[in-house]
Simulated assay, not measured.
Amino acid sequence: MELPPIPPMLATPGTLPPAAQDARWAYETKQDGQRVVAYLPGDGRVLLRARSGQDITAAYPELRALGAALAGTPAVLDGEVLALDPEGRADFQLLQSRMGLAHDPARAAHRAARVPVHLVLFDVLRLGARSLLREPYLRRREHLEGLGLSGPAWSVPAALVGHGAEALRATREHGLEGLVCKRVDSVYEPGVRSRAWIKIRNMRGEDVVVGGWLPGKGRLSGLPGAVLVGQRAAGRLRYVGGVGTGWSAAERDELAALLRAATTDACPFDPVPRVPGARWVVPRLVGEVRYSTRTREGLLRQPSWLRLRPDLTPEESAAELPDDLV
């Protein structure tokens, strides 16, 4: 059966719904992995597509068996690919070693033996010949849970209706990334960043776009001592600060190679920041940083690098300045 492509619905950053509306929302653990839509045509095959629409099936050979899990029933499923640390928590840095290998199946298979992944499924968009996009969230969850998808490398995590404050507190106590709040009557909006889904991060972290760097000194000579980052605002890339901590030696070396390959003479920030010695790059790398607060001008205070986001392009990321700082 030919299954039409469906871009995933996206959540909007926010806070817990008001207590008076708590029963109108379902709460799921926010996963720290790579978002995928899985297409199961019903003949034993599986096709995995990233948010960009790219076919990434070959990057995750251990998920091929999912194609036979529904015994001939075509389906389109929404989920997230995770790599788990020894405590069973999602670790994006581990997952990075598995990403980008869709065009190298032999290398992907080798990495799979060392860093296995797990696919968590949290929505069903199509079942048989029937689209479920206009069905409310709770009905779609009933369909999903009824499929019995519990396998060696995939599962359907629980969702809690109501009790949002308790759910958020539990994610913090267990060191999890956060919570996704989903309105129980919400339909599935393909490709839309909707207010019907709200994501809450336990750490203050945001995506940024790398637009330049400062050379390091001493033992860091020839390597980046800091990267210069920005976020979009009114169609421009606004400078939000320099980030000089958070890398391992290997990560700094990797970043140095990526920056050298993206060198340009033109500053991508508007307006151009006053940063003596800055070297500019084409703004195509997305990273995630954590920080304490912002200045009134929108600059990040005490920023620290968390990770590259090779699964996102600057256009796909949510790297935007808050409205009150534009």
Rank of each mutant, 00 (worst) to 15 (best):
E166I: 12
L47I: 13
E2S: 13
L132T: 05
L133M: 04
T73L: 09
G230P: 02
G230E: 01
L132K: 06
R279H: 14
S221H: 13
W154G: 09
L125D: 05
L149W: 10
V192W: 04
H110Y: 12
D323L: 00
E62M: 12
H174C: 06
E288G: 13
R111P: 02
A266M: 06
G33R: 00
V282P: 02
R35C: 03
A113M: 13
D55M: 08
L125S: 07
V46E: 13
P310T: 08
V229E: 00
T15L: 14
A90H: 06
S304T: 14
G211A: 07
L300Q: 08
A113N: 13
S97V: 01
E288R: 13
A83E: 11
V46Q: 12
R172S: 00
M203H: 14
A226K: 07
T293P: 01
F122M: 09
A257P: 04
S248I: 10
L308P: 03
P224C: 03
T29K: 02
L40G: 12
V275D: 05
S131A: 08
L255S: 02
V120E: 15
P41C: 11
L300K: 02
T245A: 15
I200E: 05
L308R: 11
E142K: 00
W247T: 10
Y239V: 03
L125C: 07
V117Q: 06
E80A: 00
P74G: 02
L325W: 08
V120L: 09
W25Q: 07
A65D: 14
A278P: 09
P157A: 02
G44H: 09
G225Q: 12
D311S: 03
D43N: 14
V209P: 01
P310E: 05
G164Q: 08
T264A: 02
T245E: 14
G211I: 04
S221T: 15
P4T: 02
S131E: 12
R134H: 10
L84C: 12
Q302C: 00
H110R: 15
S155W: 03
S304D: 10
L255D: 02
P13N: 10
V326T: 09
G244P: 07
P17F: 01
M99K: 03
V243I: 10
Q31L: 14
L168Y: 00
E173P: 00
R64S: 05
G175Q: 05
R134L: 13
P224W: 02
P74W: 03
E189H: 02
R51G: 13
Y137L: 11
M203R: 15
R114G: 07
P224Q: 08
G222F: 10
L149R: 06
D323K: 01
R64W: 10
